[in-house]
Design a protein around this nucleic acid. Structure first.
Length: 264
DNA sequence: AGCGATGTTCGCCG
DNA sequence: TCGGCGAACATCGC
């Protein structure tokens, strides 16, 4: 699930449930998710403090501590958050939980354990270390900046859009959506695109991600004329009705309309 | 039973 | 140096 709009939904959820409550303790049910920081260090950083806000950067969500630093969460392919009353067992696949003094807890779930939990002293520094490109919905990611970021890239446009060190937040599903709505074939070389193409891509990227975030990343609420939710062998193009094609591009399965998105 | 899945990383190769 | 490719990671559902 988690690409930029999904993580935006997690951010809303975290902000609505978990801020400004004293953290009593940190439970770590599965250390495989935690990287670069010990259980004991996490406990020391978090217990006694409170979350006072969150920051999203691409697919990363940073839960900021009021005494400095932030818990950095990456949801992999199957992560989510669950806020609930303490008491019984935490939800299945809970790997970590913050237990608040008010008797509730925020559990970090990860079915496939492909996500990560780290500690970040400073979000900017963390992003630089991870070599993250700008957040795809960052205020200052205007058209000129977008063109600069893609300039000189040699591979396919789909790979470039999914490359987190170019732009942070876009994955397999939303790269397909952006290319579908701009009628660009996923395997087109970046170097083959002209200024008008890049302008359309930039505009579509911003609009699509903004709309998807407004829906809280819920694919079921996506507009009918989007590709989202129609990915798959038995689906047809919402624009022209042609059967969709699946092909491997950038190591992932790209779904696209063979009639609207012309072969490179 | 086997395959693929909304992600990332690593080694190998051109 | 950059990118493509396949494998690996772990788990579930079709």
């Amino acid at each position: 699930m988690p690409e930029l709009p999904d993580v935006a939904g997690f951010k809303q959820y975290l902000d609505a449930t978990s801020l400004h409550q004293p953290i009593a303790t940190v439970r770590c049910y599965d250390e495989r998710l935690v990287e670069g920081v010990s259980k004991r260090a996490l406990q020391r950083r978090l217990a006694g403090g409170a979350l006072d806000g969150s920051v999203q950067w691409g697919k990363w969500l940073f839960a900021r501590l009021d005494r400095g630093g932030a818990l950095a969460l990456h949801f992999g392919m199957s992560g989510q958050l669950a806020y609930e009353k303490q008491g019984g067992d935490p939800p299945e696949h809970s790997r970590l939980a913050l237990e608040f003094a008010n008797g509730y807890r925020l559990a970090v779930l990860s079915r496939r354990v492909l996500g990560r939990v780290r500690w970040a002293e400073d979000v900017e520094t963390f992003a630089a270390e991870q070599e993250l490109g700008p957040h795809a919905l960052a205020e200052d990611l205007d058209r000129d900046r977008f063109v600069e970021l893609l300039a000189g890239k040699r591979g396919s446009i789909k790979s470039a859009l999914m490359n987190q060190s170019v732009i942070a937040g876009i994955g397999n599903v939303y790269s397909d959506e952006i290319l579908f709505q701009t009628k660009i074939h996923p395997a087109r070389a970046v170097s083959d695109l002209d200024a008008a193409d890049l302008g359309r891509l930039h505009k579509a990227m911003r609009r699509i991600l903004r709309v998807a975030c407004d829906k809280g990343g819920d694919a079921r609420k996506a507009p009918r004329n989007w590709l989202l939710g129609k990915r798959g062998r038995d689906s047809s193009c919402p624009r022209c009705g042609a059967g969709l094609t699946g092909a491997t591009v950038g190591g992932r399965t790209a779904w696209f309309c063979p009639r609207c998105q012309i072969e490179p």
